[in-house]
Amino acid sequence: MGKYNKIIAIVAVLLITFSFLGCTQNLNSPQKSSTKEIVDMRGVTVTIPSDPQRVVIVDKGFILQSMVAIGVQDKIVASGGMLSSTNEKADDRDSLYLFPKILELPNIGYTFGGFNFETLISAKPDLVLWANSEYIKDNEITKEAMKKIETELKIPLVVINTPGAYDNPTMEKQYEGLMIIGKVFGKEKRAQEIINYTKSQIEMIYNRTKDIKDSEKPSTMYLGLRNDDSVGVVWGKNYGDAKFAEEVANIKNVYNEPNRQIMSAEQIIALNPDVIILATNSVLPDINILSTNSKYSSLQNVNAVKNKRIGSLGLLTWWGDFKLDYPTIMLISAKTVYPDKFKDIKVNKWVNDYHKKLYGLNDEQSQRLKEIQLLAWMDSNDF
Rank of each mutant, 00 (worst) to 15 (best):
Thr170Ala: 11
Asp241Thr: 09
Asn207Ala: 07
Ala249Trp: 06
Thr209Gly: 04
Gln174Ile: 07
Ile251Thr: 01
Lys173Pro: 00
Tyr197Glu: 08
Asp241Ala: 15
Tyr197Gly: 05
Leu225Gly: 01
Asp229Ala: 13
Val231Thr: 09
Lys217Tyr: 02
Lys199Gln: 14
Ile180Asp: 01
Ala249Leu: 01
Arg208Leu: 12
Phe244Leu: 03
Ile180Arg: 04
Phe244Gln: 03
Asp211Gly: 00
Glu247Phe: 03
Asp228Lys: 09
Ala245Ser: 14
Ile202Cys: 00
Thr170Phe: 07
Arg208Phe: 10
Ile251Cys: 00
Lys217Ile: 09
Leu223Phe: 10
Tyr175Met: 11
Phe244Ser: 00
Phe185Ile: 09
Tyr197His: 11
Lys243Glu: 14
Phe244Cys: 02
Gln174Ala: 14
Tyr166Ala: 05
Tyr197Arg: 11
Pro163Ser: 06
Leu157Met: 09
Lys189Phe: 13
Tyr166Cys: 06
Arg190Cys: 07
Ile205Cys: 01
Asp211Gln: 11
Thr170Ile: 14
Glu176Leu: 11
Thr162His: 08
Val159Tyr: 10
Asn207Lys: 14
Gly224Glu: 06
Asn196Trp: 10
Pro169Ala: 06
Ile212Val: 08
Gly240Phe: 13
Thr209Asn: 03
Ala249Pro: 01
Gly224Trp: 09
Val158His: 05
Val158Ser: 07
Val184Pro: 00
Pro218Cys: 02
Thr198His: 12
Gly177Ser: 11
Leu178Trp: 12
Ser215Glu: 15
Tyr206Ala: 12
Met221Arg: 07
Pro156Trp: 13
Tyr222Ser: 08
Glu172Leu: 08
Val159Asn: 05
Glu193Ala: 08
Ile194His: 02
Lys252Ser: 12
Ile180Gly: 00
Glu216Tyr: 06
Ser200Leu: 09
Ile180Pro: 01
Tyr175Cys: 03
Ile194Cys: 03
Gly164Gln: 09
Gly164Ser: 09
Val234Pro: 03
Met221Gly: 03
Gly232Leu: 05
Glu203Pro: 00
Met171Lys: 10
Pro169Cys: 00
Tyr166Thr: 05
Gly240His: 12
Met204Cys: 02
Ile181Ala: 07
Glu203Cys: 01
Tyr206Trp: 07
Ile195Lys: 15
Val158Met: 06
Phe244Thr: 02
Ile181Asn: 10
Asp229Lys: 14
Gly240Asp: 13
Asp228Tyr: 11
Lys217Met: 04
Val231Lys: 02
Gly240Val: 05
Gln192Ala: 09
Tyr222Pro: 00
Ala242Ser: 12
Gln192Phe: 08
Thr198Asn: 15
Gly177His: 07
Ser200Arg: 07
Asp214His: 04
Val234Ala: 06
Pro163Glu: 02
Ala165Val: 01
Gln174Lys: 10
Lys187Pro: 01
Tyr166Pro: 03
Lys173Ile: 03
Asp214Gln: 12
Trp235Phe: 15
Lys217Ser: 04
Phe185Met: 11
Val233Asp: 11
Pro218His: 05
Asn207Ile: 04
Ala245Tyr: 06
Tyr222Ile: 14
Thr198Gly: 12
Gly236Ala: 02
Ile202Gly: 03
Met179Ser: 14
Tyr239Trp: 15
Trp235Arg: 05
Leu225Pro: 01
Ile202Phe: 12
Gln201Ile: 14
Lys237Leu: 11
Arg208Gly: 05
Gly232Glu: 04
Glu193Tyr: 10
Gly236Cys: 02
Asn161Ala: 06
Gly232Ser: 04
Ile181Thr: 08
Thr170Ser: 14
Gln201Lys: 15
Ser219Met: 04
Glu172Ile: 03
